[in-house]
């Protein structure tokens, strides 16, 4: 069996998050060089500040804590940290607080060590506004004015390798040879494409591979009229479900060269192949109406 088709890709997005009044105050505190906790109803002080007491109910107000703090426990950041360099991951509990938060210390530390915050030169109202260093804190004149950071931008990026699987790899490789493969179910006799290694309605039935025509019928469609990134046709264009001749299940593709205002369900279409062979659905550039 040939190896599956694979391709690396990166999933990346910048989330814009609403912080709410309490976490927003905590972040504004960081921007001002102040550590804020929340008072619980029973007198405990929760850090970092939170709307919710994990033992139940809402918290009842904000209170400054620290800036001196103790390391609850710590481990080395292997290979360093992308933002802070050589660092130790630590659970850090500021003086006056009953709970700790996960953050980074820029030098070796262990449980019980005293640490203090070192503030960023240009604070942004984010968790990156400080790093911790061993030693006692100096007296601080910083105050929090009561302002709130209402949103933060948090980028997320993950690297993947997409592997297409046995049936899909066979289907895509055939497309690179300008062949459209489907599967016929031994139980219900229906033919479907793309290949998926089985029948979607007869789970225990065998399937055989069949070759399909490059022509078919438009069974449903929508008209795309707005531009977006990665678009392959210039709007307005038709995107829809195409039932290839000899198949019982439509597949989704684009329809180019059609007048969006006059095209109708039932229109005959044919595949327009891309100039360069490619083992993906993009081997078919789009479908286009066949003149009656």
């Amino acid at each position: 069996m040939p190896s599956p088709l694979e391709e690396p890709y990166r999933l990346e997005y910048v989330y814009k998050r609403t912080t709410g009044p309490v976490t927003g105050a905590f972040l504004a505190g960081l921007r001002s060089g102040v550590l804020l906790g929340s008072r619980a109803r029973d007198g405990r002080v929760l850090f970092p500040a939170s709307e919710v007491d994990h033992r139940g109910g809402a918290t009842v107000g904000l209170t400054p804590v620290g800036p001196g703090a103790v390391v609850v426990t710590a481990v080395e950041a292997r290979g360093g940290h992308p933002a802070f360099g050589a660092a130790w991951w630590a659970l850090i509990r500021p003086d006056g607080a009953d709970t700790s938060m996960l953050h980074l210390v820029g030098a070796p530390v262990r449980a019980g060590d005293r640490v203090h915050p070192v503030w960023a030169a240009t604070p942004a109202g984010s968790i990156f506004d400080l790093v911790w260093m061993p030693g006692e804190a100096q007296a601080s004149a910083a105050t929090w004015s009561g302002d709130v950071v209402t949103t933060v931008r948090t980028p997320v990026g993950l690297d993947y390798v997409a592997r297409a699987g046995v049936a899909a790899s066979t289907f895509f490789r055939a497309l690179a040879e300008r062949r459209v493969l489907g599967e016929r179910c031994a139980a219900c006799g229906k033919v479907s494409a793309p290949m998926r290694g089985g029948c979607a309605t007869c789970p225990d039935a065998a399937v055989t591979t069949v070759e399909l025509a490059h022509t078919g019928v438009l069974t449903m469609f929508t008209v795309v009229r707005f531009p977006f990134e990665g678009q392959r046709l210039a709007p307005p264009y038709v995107a829809g479900w195409i039932l290839l001749d000899g198949s019982d299940v439509p597949l989704f593709h684009l329809v180019g060269g059609a007048d969006p205002d006059t095209i109708e369900v039932g229109a005959r279409v044919r595949a327009v192949w891309a100039d360069a062979p490619v083992a993906s659905l993009e081997a078919i550039q789009h479908f286009t109406p066949v003149s009656p």
């Binding site: 998050r17 912080t19 976490t23 940290h81 968790i127 997409a162």
Partner: peptide
């Protein structure tokens, strides 16, 4: 398919913890 340690970090507090990107092994080691 991907770096599963980084994936699990995304289950953490999205504002105060996940941006620091501690992978799963950091929390287990702690």
């Amino acid at each position: 398919a991907g770096d599963q340690g980084k994936v699990s970090a995304l289950a953490l507090d999205p504002i105060l913890t996940a941006p620091l990107a501690p992978d799963a092994s950091v929390l287990e080691r702690l």
